[in-house]
């Protein structure tokens, strides 16, 4: 996914979300759980991106502070 641009990534997340939402309505049992994961994928991905970006930002700040010392 890292090679995908921002727009294809957005469209892919939207597609996964829609597939999960519709799939949950059609499926039962294990399928229900799988489609729920798909439906939740955009928010999970968002949380993950937010966390990695924050970490990367913190690391940059740390390197800069270390460099100044």
């Amino acid at each position: 996914m890292s090679r995908l641009g921002a727009l294809p990534r957005t469209l892919l997340l939207a597609l996964l979300g829609v597939a999960g939402i519709v799939g949950m309505l059609l499926a039962d049992g294990v399928g229900d759980a799988v489609f729920f994961l798909l439906a939740a994928a955009p928010l999970v991905a968002g949380g993950w991106y937010g966390w990695t970006m924050r970490r990367a930002g913190a690391a940059r700040t740390g390197h800069a502070a270390h460099g100044r010392r």
Partner: peptide, 8 residues
């Protein structure tokens, strides 16, 4: 971008 699919 995160809520696009749901909102659609």
């Amino acid at each position: 971008a995160l809520v696009l699919g749901w909102a659609l």
